[in-house]
């Protein structure tokens, strides 16, 4: 229903008239995609984590391009700052080999490739088919910190608090799981 309202509004956009933002978006998107591909294909495990940093950072740039500033910074903070560090610690703790490990991919590689390609084809076809004539108006900033803060603490405060409980639960769970049983003296 929104579609019908939006399309006439954006009818001034030419189908093949990329703006500068679009060009940057596509280029950064290609970088993100390449980094993601390297993340899942590289044979050096630590490199995979580093390529993940690149992909997630690129996504932060994409958020910025979509005028979602707050999300972009949160992305950088939490993902690049926290999650990747955690992942690196995980790699170290499980004594992942530094350097090329030839058996980084399991035997299901080709099955996985087939499934992934099929999913990609389906999704891309559907998405392109659905949003062929849809444009985003980037005229005003949609995700400023202020706006986000207002909605978050005015309308989403209950889920927010629930989420804090979830985080606490995850914290406790992680501690319990990784705690070592005390051996009897």
């Amino acid at each position: 229903m929104n579609l019908a309202a939006v399309v006439p509004l954006d009818s001034t956009h030419g189908f093949l008239s990329p703006s500068g933002v679009e060009i940057v978006f596509v280029l950064v998107g290609l970088g993100v995609l390449g980094a993601a591909l390297l993340t899942v294909t590289t044979k050096q495990l630590v490199h995979a984590a580093l390529w993940l940093v690149v992909a997630l950072g690129g996504l932060a740039i994409e958020y910025l391009l979509l005028t979602a500033e707050f999300i972009a910074w949160v992305q950088v903070l939490i993902y690049v700052g926290a999650v990747v560090v955690l992942v690196l610690f995980g790699l170290m703790l499980t004594r992942a080999p530094i350097g090329v490990s030839p058996d980084a991919d399991s035997g299901n590689r080709w099955l996985a490739l087939g499934v992934a390609l099929a999913a990609a084809a389906t999704l891309v076809t559907l998405v392109v088919d659905a949003f062929r004539c849809t444009w985003i108006d980037l005229g005003t900033v949609a995700g400023s910190t202020k706006a986000n803060g207002v909605t978050l603490f005015r309308y989403w405060v209950l889920p927010f608090e629930a989420l804090s409980v979830l985080l606490l639960a995850a914290l406790v769970g992680a501690i319990v799981l990784s705690r070592r049983e005390k051996k009897e003296p």
Binding site: V32, L33, A116, F131, T134
Partner: peptide, 23 residues
């Protein structure tokens, strides 16, 4: 900006992740 760009990027990224999970 064309909505297809982020949507396709998201779809492809998702499938790359899917491949990684499976492989």
């Amino acid at each position: 900006m064309h909505l297809v760009f982020p949507a396709v990027l998201a779809a492809l990224l998702f499938c790359v992740g899917l491949y990684g999970v499976l492989a």
